[in-house]
Design a protein around this nucleic acid. Structure first.
Ligand SMILES: [Mn+2]
Ligand SMILES: [Mn+2]
Ligand SMILES: [Zn+2]
Ligand SMILES: [Zn+2]
Lengths: 152, 152
DNA sequence: TGCTAAATAGGAATAGTTCCTAAACAGGAA
DNA sequence: TTCCTGTTTAGGAACTATTCCTATTTAGCA
């Protein structure tokens, strides 16, 4: 999973994107993360290298990368968008206590049988399984009382 | 699926909630809908009966109903929260063109095998399958060009 | 019929994101 | 190498969905 600068540069070129230091740093930070960071998470991570950088640039960059298909936006809960540079088909598990999102790479989930009872002219292009639960530290801290109200 | 006023009143009482006209109208509107409306959708639907009603009341009411377990919040995409009074375990199919959400009631999806590769101290309490695609009208209108960027 | 905690309405505040615009810059052309 | 142009960046303002605050009203109970 090691990605070099030239790998990133080539990917940008393939997508017709200019290779700027900010863009490279943002994409690189996302590639190295498995935490599904928010735009602000990424901003905090790369801002030290670019004291002038604006959060706006992070949003713009993530939009460009998403449109180019280099990253995915993972929306679980409606509060903040989270991003993922892992393009391998996979699923997610979210802790309802701390919102941590971990990857679920089990390939058996990639081929669910086509569901019945849906409108016949609806074309299904994909699916995503979102598991909900409590991570170990949240189980210990919150005494396992969680609200199940929100589902991804 | 027909629900009477007294059914609603009883449910509110079981939850220790006062039966107000606004609350009844909001819950009733949600019960009658299969569209997974937003708070504003519900406001538009019930506001004519209550010219003084504020959108705030809709948010407050939905929060109370959710905390009481009478409704679910369905978060697909991070833009707006959508609500569902259908408490039967089920899944969803969203049109990436028009954001329409339809129910997927296939019970085979309710019992997925427990995925491997997740942290051993993570307790899974549930899951939700979100299918993505294009509804018939969006297929016709947009020439099937959609962005797959956002996943639930 | 009154009391009181809950609910409502309205306005202000907040958070996340997008829009607008001028300046800077990457990468191709000359 | 230098120049040019469209892209990218930074900064600020705007926008949207939601929450917070608070005074008034009201449902349900004594
Ligand atoms: Mn992921
Ligand atoms: Mn539903
Ligand atoms: Zn947790
Ligand atoms: Zn559609």
């Amino acid at each position: 999973m090691e990605i070099s600068f030239s790998d990133i540069k080539r990917k940008f070129q393939e997508c017709g994107l200019k290779t700027t230091p900010q863009r490279t740093a943002i994409y690189d930070a996302l590639l190295r993360s498995t935490a599904h960071p928010t735009a602000e998470d990424l901003f905090v991570k790369v801002a030290p290298q670019f004291p002038m950088m604006s959060l706006n640039t992070v949003y713009y960059t993530l939009g460009v990368l998403r449109t180019s298909g280099l990253i995915h936006e993972v929306n679980i809960g409606h509060t903040r968008a989270r991003f993922d540079a892992n393009l391998t088909p996979h699923h997610h598990l979210i802790c309802l206590g701390c919102q941590t999102i971990v990857d679920v790479m089990d390939p058996r989930l990639n081929r669910l049988t086509s569901p019945f009872g849906i409108p016949k002219d609806f074309e299904i292009t994909g699916h995503q399984v979102v598991f909900r639960g409590l991570c170990g530290s949240c189980r210990r801290h919150t005494g396992r009382s969680i609200n199940h109200s929100s589902s991804g």
